[in-house]
Simulated scan of single mutants.
Amino acid sequence: MTEGNFVDYIKMNVQSGNGGKGSMHLHREKYITKGGPDGGDGGRGGHVIMRGNQNLWTLFHLKFKKHIRAEHGGHGSASRSTGADGADVYVEVPLGTVVKDAETNEVIFEITEHGEEKIIVEGGKGGLGNWHFRSSTNQTPRYAQPGIPLQERDILLELKILADVGLVGFPNAGKSTLLSVITSAKPKIADYEFTTLKPNLGIVEYRDFQTFVMADIPGIIEGAAEGRGLGHYFLRHIERNSILLFLIPADANDILEQYEILLDELRRYNPEMLDKERLIAISKSDLLDAELEAELKAELDKTLPIDYMFFSAVAQKGIIELKDRLWKMLHV
């Protein structure tokens, strides 16, 4: 998936259908000039329904659909005939989509399961025909109910990607390089910060034809929890990852300090993120000779609070071990 095709934020207007009008018809046929009421009910207006689809990874297919309209219900007619219901409109969305009210920013619901359906605006109920209003004292009612009007609202669709492993690190830590090596994804790679501006997803092939999903997400900076840099755009995408893989380059000035800054940003954005499984991967370890790596390992054994490992995506060093470690964490 190319970066330009990854769309994770859409604003749209949705509108259901009007309910059909009930009929005021009075029965007429040969030799019966003054029959009783036989007006039918109006049909229900169409709903607009969100439906989860596990085969979608982005909101790109909705990028140019700013207005969604359902059909109106048909009007009732003679012989107590009910009007046709308006056709519902189904909007397919990827799993992890959050639907919000555009005016209040209030979360309406989230779609997290394949085939899950939620009505976003209900179609109006059809009105009752005059058949329902007959009585012993009013045998020819010349009135019927109008249909209930449509519902309309502006909504926001936000995608929080569902991935097994989310890559967490400062800009230019090697996240895109790792994704390009262990998956078939082709993220943009360059030697400047914020090369990745939108998340990239890749499927990691493991032993015996098994797979898991890894997400390369825009780099975090200090103050991201308050919205600095790509801020919340980055952080909301790792809320649904099962494992957080912290990537810190081997040439960092202080590996422990970088880890604590990253962890603090997650804590300030959402403390529940700290409940996820975590692993530190020291990237660019091809820059270290055996002696330097041994010295750094002795230091990290004393200071780092969680498990860590060395790897190099460019030199293909430690890649198999990294896959094994992640698979084991996912299936404990």
Score class of each variant (00 low, 15 high):
Leu62Cys: 02
Asn5Phe: 02
Phe170Asp: 00
His237Leu: 03
Val48Asn: 03
Arg80Asn: 10
Val314Asn: 12
Lys276Gln: 02
Lys118Ala: 08
His61Phe: 09
Thr97Leu: 12
Arg80Gly: 02
Leu330Gln: 11
Val14Asn: 14
Lys66Ser: 13
Phe194Asn: 13
Glu265Val: 07
Glu321Thr: 10
Lys125Phe: 05
Thr58Ala: 05
Gln54Val: 00
Pro37Ser: 14
Gln210Asp: 08
Lys34Cys: 08
Phe170Trp: 14
Tyr31Val: 02
Leu235Val: 06
Tyr90Arg: 03
Phe64Ala: 15
Gly42Thr: 03
Val204Gln: 03
Ala190Lys: 03
Gly52Tyr: 02
Leu300Gln: 11
Tyr192Glu: 02
Pro37Glu: 13
Gly96Pro: 04
Ser285Asp: 09
Gly73Leu: 04
Leu245Thr: 00
Glu295His: 09
Phe6Arg: 05
Glu239Val: 07
Val107Asp: 00
Gly231Lys: 06
Gly74Tyr: 05
Glu299Phe: 10
Arg134Ala: 15
Ser285Leu: 13
Gly40Lys: 13
Ser135Glu: 02
Lys118Phe: 01
Leu157Lys: 10
Leu287Asn: 05
Leu62Gly: 03
Leu288Ala: 12
Leu296Lys: 13
Val314Cys: 10
Lys100Cys: 14
Glu116Lys: 07
Ile161Gln: 06
Gly124Ala: 05
Glu265Lys: 05
Arg69His: 11
Lys21Glu: 05
Asp307Thr: 14
Asn253Leu: 08
Ile161Asn: 06
Ile238His: 12
Leu167Phe: 13
Arg142Gln: 09
Arg28His: 13
His27Phe: 15
Ile111Ser: 11
Asp254Gln: 08
Glu113Thr: 01
Gly166Thr: 00
Gly42Ile: 05
Gly86Leu: 08
Gly40Ser: 12
Ser81Met: 14
Phe109Val: 12
Val99Thr: 00
Ile32Arg: 05
Leu95Asp: 03
Glu110Arg: 14
His132Cys: 04
Lys34Gly: 07
